[in-house]
C-alpha cells in the first residue's frame, strides 16, 4: 500500500512537472539561480541592476542618483501628461487609476487583441485614439519623458505582471523566453549568456547585470548618450553589440521579450527612471 502510494506520488509528480512546466516554475528557477550565485545580494536589491552585484561602482552611482539627471524629464513628462489633447481629453482618461501608479502592471496580455501591450505602446494608442500623432519610440523626447513620469508615480509599487490562462499569452511568454535564450549575431551570444550565465564576470570593463530586475528602472538616463534610453532601445543596443540585427522598438518580438523579462522581475519594486553610465 505504502509503495503504491509512493509510486503514485512519483508518477503524479513527474506528470505535473511535464504538463505544467509553467512560468511560475521558470520564475522560481531564476530566483534560486541568482540567490545561489550572489548570496550577498538581497532579493529586493535586484531592482538596482548591475549595482546589486558590483559594489565597486555602486558608490559613484549612488552619488549620481543624489542629483538625478532625469529630474527634468520627469517634470517635462508630468507637464505633457497633464496637458489636454486638442479634443479636450487627456492621458488620464486612457488608463486605469487615471494613469497614476500603474507601471507595475505593464506589460499585460490583452486577451481581446491577443497580444502583449506595453506602457509605451498604450501611450501612443491613447494619443491616436484621441486624434493625436504618435510619438517616436527612439532617442528620448516626449515618449521617454511620459514613460519616465508614469514610472515615477509608481515608485515603490511591486512588479506584478500576469500571464492569463490563455494559450496565446503563454505562447507570447514562450516566444520572449526563446529569444532570451537563443544565440544570435556574428558574435553568437544569447541574452542569457551575458545576463544569466556570465552575470557578474567582466567583459573588459563592463559587467552584465542579472536578468531579474531589468525593467523596474526604465527608462534609464544614460550619461554616455546624454538622454533617456527606452527598454527597447537598450535591447537593440545589446543586439548591435553582438552584431545581430536589432528588431523594431515596440514590434512583437520586443514586446514578447519585455513580457518575459518583466514576469521575471515580479516581486521587485518599481524604481524608474534610473541612471546608468
Amino acid at each position: 500500500m505504502n509503495n503504491f502510494k509512493t509510486l503514485f506520488l512519483l508518477i503524479f509528480g513527474l506528470f505535473s512537472v511535464a504538463l505544467f512546466a509553467s512560468p511560475e516554475e521558470d520564475l522560481q528557477k531564476f530566483r534560486d539561480y541568482f540567490e545561489n550565485r550572489f548570496p550577498e545580494t538581497e532579493f529586493s536589491d535586484y531592482k538596482n541592476g548591475v549595482y546589486s552585484i558590483d559594489l565597486s561602482s555602486r558608490e559613484q552611482w549612488e552619488s549620481i542618483e543624489d542629483f538625478p539627471p532625469y529630474e527634468i524629464n520627469i517634470e517635462q513628462g508630468e507637464e505633457l501628461f497633464n496637458t489636454p489633447f486638442k479634443n479636450g481629453n487627456n492621458y488620464a482618461s486612457c488608463f486605469e487609476n487615471d494613469g497614476i501608479g500603474i507601471r507595475q502592471n505593464y506589460p499585460y496580455f490583452d486577451e481581446n487583441r491577443g497580444e502583449v501591450i506595453t506602457l509605451e505602446l498604450a501611450i501612443n494608442e491613447c494619443r491616436k485614439n484621441n486624434g493625436e500623432k504618435p510619438y517616436s519610440y527612439y532617442k528620448g523626447g516626449p515618449m521617454a519623458d511620459l514613460s519616465a513620469y508614469m514610472a515615477s508615480t509608481s515608485s515603490g509599487k511591486i512588479f506584478d505582471v500576469e500571464i492569463p490562462n490563455d494559450d496565446r499569452a503563454f505562447d507570447a511568454y514562450e516566444e520572449g523566453k526563446r529569444l532570451y535564450f537563443t544565440k544570435v549575431g556574428q558574435l553568437n551570444f544569447s541574452c542569457a549568456d551575458c545576463h544569466v550565465y556570465q552575470t557578474g564576470s567582466k567583459l573588459r570593463a563592463d559587467i552584465p547585470s542579472p536578468a531579474i530586475g531589468h525593467p523596474t528602472h526604465f527608462p534609464v538616463y544614460r550619461s554616455s548618450a546624454g538622454r533617456l534610453v527606452s527598454l527597447h532601445e537598450r535591447f537593440a543596443g545589446c543586439l548591435n553589440r553582438v552584431r545581430a540585427k536589432p528588431f523594431k522598438a515596440q514590434g512583437e518580438e520586443y514586446r514578447n521579450l519585455e513580457f518575459f523579462i518583466s514576469y521575471m522581475s515580479n516581486g521587485l519594486e518599481i524604481n524608474g527612471p534610473g541612471s546608468r553610465k
Binding site: Q198, S201, K202, L203, R204, A205
Partner: peptide, 8 residues
C-alpha cells in the same frame, strides 16, 4: 600587457 582585461 593587456589593460582592462575581462575574466570569464
Amino acid at each position: 600587457d593587456g589593460e582592462l582585461a575581462g575574466n570569464n
